[in-house]
Simulated assay, not measured.
Amino acid sequence: MFGPLGFSLAPYIQSSKTLTSWVKPLANWYANAAGYRQYGFKYDDLLVEENEPVQKALSRLTPREHYDRAFRLKRASQASILHKPLEKNEWTPAAEDVRYLKPHVLEVMKEDAERHKWDTVVVEKK
């Protein structure tokens, strides 16, 4: 529930059409107001990399995903140095802002939970 991805009410909201119709415009407004798309970032580029599950998930990216992430980080650094966002045509569109790292992080967290479960098994002699 908690961890590098944080707490999320998304599954509950997505299960209700009424809640989705109310919250989706607010979520889109907030994502645009956050400003990370203006620098070419995707949402998962903002995850804290110092967490062990995120580090493991980053190592599981394909070479293309790894290159694209590095390119986005360097391009945003350059824009930050210039003290202005990217040109409007270089912004990340909402349709391209997909969670590319989330499945890997969830997989790592599941593996860690399973490893912990097996490491703490108590074997009793009958």
Rank of each mutant, 00 (worst) to 15 (best):
89 N>H: 07
72 R>C: 05
87 E>F: 08
40 G>H: 02
21 S>T: 14
106 L>M: 08
123 V>R: 12
92 T>G: 01
96 E>M: 00
14 Q>Y: 12
81 I>H: 12
94 A>I: 10
82 L>T: 09
61 L>M: 11
26 L>V: 14
7 F>R: 03
55 Q>N: 06
77 S>H: 14
22 W>I: 15
117 K>V: 10
125 K>V: 15
106 L>R: 06
52 E>Y: 13
119 D>T: 07
89 N>I: 08
51 N>W: 14
66 H>D: 06
59 S>Q: 15
77 S>Q: 14
110 K>T: 10
91 W>F: 06
92 T>W: 01
20 T>N: 10
14 Q>S: 12
115 R>P: 01
38 Q>W: 04
32 N>C: 04
121 V>F: 10
71 F>I: 14
51 N>V: 07
22 W>C: 13
34 A>V: 07
70 A>P: 03
76 A>K: 02
105 V>E: 00
34 A>Q: 09
86 L>F: 03
18 T>V: 15
97 D>I: 07
2 F>Q: 10
72 R>L: 05
126 K>A: 14
74 K>E: 13
59 S>I: 04
24 K>M: 13
10 A>R: 13
6 G>W: 00
61 L>P: 03
101 L>F: 03
29 W>T: 13
116 H>F: 14
30 Y>G: 13
91 W>K: 00
5 L>T: 08
19 L>N: 05
5 L>Y: 01
78 Q>F: 14
2 F>H: 11
15 S>N: 15
35 G>P: 09
111 E>W: 01
86 L>I: 06
89 N>R: 07
77 S>D: 14
16 S>H: 15
68 D>Y: 05
40 G>V: 02
11 P>W: 03
105 V>D: 00
100 Y>L: 02
88 K>Y: 04
97 D>E: 02
114 E>H: 10
58 L>C: 04
